[in-house]
Amino acid sequence: MAISFISVWTLIARTVLSSISIEVEPLLIEFGKSGVDISCVVNGTNLIGITNILLKRSESYVVSVTKFKIAWQDKALDNKTGVTVNASISNTMTSYLRLEISKTAVRFPEDVGSYQCILSAFTASGDIKQYRSQSVVLNITGFLESTTNLFSTTNYKNTEVSVQKVA
């Protein structure tokens, strides 16, 4: 029984030591009034090297870091005022990727979605493995619902459409 317990503990310890986590603050953004801070953090690890960290939103990638550079996959965020990214993968024990979007740069609906961090790293055996954090959903609120009448030029009918306005 003691050997089984030690084996399970070793497996749990290795899983924890070779992972990446995500932190999103806050999970609910009030449009125009709060920004967001998203961090991918490599937990204490037994890895020998990191090739990259990627931040993914829903089905697309936002930004990544390699040994040589930070690369934007979401080109609309690249060089946008109020958006900063800091990252380092030089030390496997302290590697991270942090994206900050100020309240003036938050986009709706583009920034809404499920965020996840992905780590690619070399293990002690020389293999490259990929680790994924849990997914965290970021929502944006602060819109007032209103109704607008649109006139269609193709079928000459009035169509009622629901739109959202910033509060």
Results as ranks from 00 to 15, higher is better:
M1T: 07
A2M: 09
F5T: 02
I6K: 11
I6L: 15
I6A: 10
S7P: 00
V8W: 07
I12M: 08
A13G: 00
R14V: 02
T15S: 05
V16Q: 08
L17H: 12
L17R: 14
S18G: 09
S18I: 02
I22E: 05
V24W: 02
V24Y: 12
V24P: 08
E25T: 15
P26Y: 06
L28W: 00
I29W: 08
I29E: 08
I29Q: 12
K33W: 09
K33R: 15
G35E: 08
V36R: 03
D37M: 05
D37H: 12
D37P: 01
I38H: 02
S39L: 11
C40S: 09
V41K: 14
T45G: 12
N46I: 07
N52T: 07
N52K: 15
I53N: 03
L55A: 04
L55W: 07
R57T: 07
R57P: 05
S60T: 15
S64T: 13
T66F: 12
K67N: 13
F68K: 15
F68E: 15
I70T: 14
I70P: 02
W72P: 07
W72L: 11
Q73P: 00
K75E: 15
D78G: 01
N79Q: 14
K80Y: 03
T81H: 03
T81R: 11
G82W: 05
V83N: 02
V83F: 04
V83D: 01
N86H: 09
A87Q: 01
I89M: 09
I89T: 07
S90L: 14
N91F: 11
N91S: 14
T92V: 15
M93H: 11
M93K: 13
T94N: 14
S95T: 06
Y96F: 15
L97F: 01
L97Y: 00
E100Y: 08
I101H: 04
S102G: 09
K103D: 13
K103H: 14
T104Q: 13
V106W: 02
F108R: 05
F108E: 04
P109G: 09
G113T: 10
G113D: 11
Y115L: 06
C117K: 06
C117V: 10
C117A: 13
L119I: 04
L119V: 05
L119A: 01
S120M: 09
T123V: 01
A124C: 01
S125T: 14
S125I: 02
D127V: 04
D127P: 00
D127F: 06
I128C: 08
K129F: 03
Q130A: 06
Y131N: 02
Q134W: 03
V136G: 06
V137E: 12
L138E: 02
N139H: 04
I140C: 01
G142Q: 11
F143N: 07
F143M: 14
E145I: 09
T147F: 10
T147Q: 06
T148W: 05
N149D: 11
S152V: 02
T153W: 03
T154Q: 13
T154Y: 10
N155G: 02
Y156P: 00
Y156W: 05
K157W: 07
K157M: 10
K157A: 12
N158C: 01
N158Q: 08
E160C: 00
V161E: 12
S162G: 04
V163D: 02
K165T: 10
K165A: 10
V166H: 03
A167T: 11
A167Y: 14
